[in-house]
């Protein structure tokens, strides 16, 4: 079982589809903190709640200048439908081809299940992992850990 990348590790860069015809690279966001929220699947009840809470508190993340990114192995069209249905105001990245490649590099891919773990990373403005957290897959981790980590970033 690979280990989730710990704090202090440089965050592996990646480029993934953010819509069916646009891509986003982690390095595009250098200079501001990034919250990377890996989740198992669009539409599953726990994920929907988790992303719904994050959507609601986006202004709190923005107070820290942070960008929130959701990421799962679902394809961009699926993300598009999910985001529209729920009214999300943050990007969902498709770790779809090769499947789960980014999740593997962060140590949060579940081989037997073909999905990513429910895992959170706060990456600092210089691209280093400042905090990471692996949640039990059935437990929605909420946002308290993220906000604590953002507050603890060096100013």
């Amino acid at each position: 079982m690979p280990e989730i990348l710990p704090a202090g590790t440089p965050a592996p860069d990646f480029t993934l589809p953010v819509t069916p015809d646009q891509k986003l690279s982690l390095s595009d966001l250098r200079g501001k903190p990034v919250i990377l929220a890996f989740y198992p699947a669009d539409w599953s009840p726990v994920c929907g709640d988790q992303m719904g809470v994050y959507n609601e508190i986006l202004p709190e993340f923005q107070k820290h200048g942070a960008e929130l990114i959701g990421i799962s192995v679902d394809g961009p069209w699926c993300h598009d439908a999910f985001a529209q249905d729920r009214g999300f105001h943050f990007p969902l990245l498709a770790d779809f081809e090769p499947k789960g490649a980014v999740a593997r590099r962060y140590g949060v891919y579940r081989d037997g299940d073909g999905i990513s773990e429910r895992a959170l990373f706060v990456i600092d403005k210089d691209g280093k992992i400042a905090w990471s957290y692996l949640s039990p897959i059935a437990v929605n981790p909420g946002a308290d850990g993220i906000l604590d980590a953002l507050e603890n970033l060096p100013k």
């Binding site: 726990v46 709640d49 988790q50 809470v53 508190i57 709190e60 909420g142 946002a143 308290d144 906000l147």
Partner: peptide
């Protein structure tokens, strides 16, 4: 109240 909940780990309703 909402933010107090968020800081306590409220993760949905």
């Amino acid at each position: 109240e909402f933010m107090g909940g968020v800081r306590s780990g409220v993760n949905g309703t």
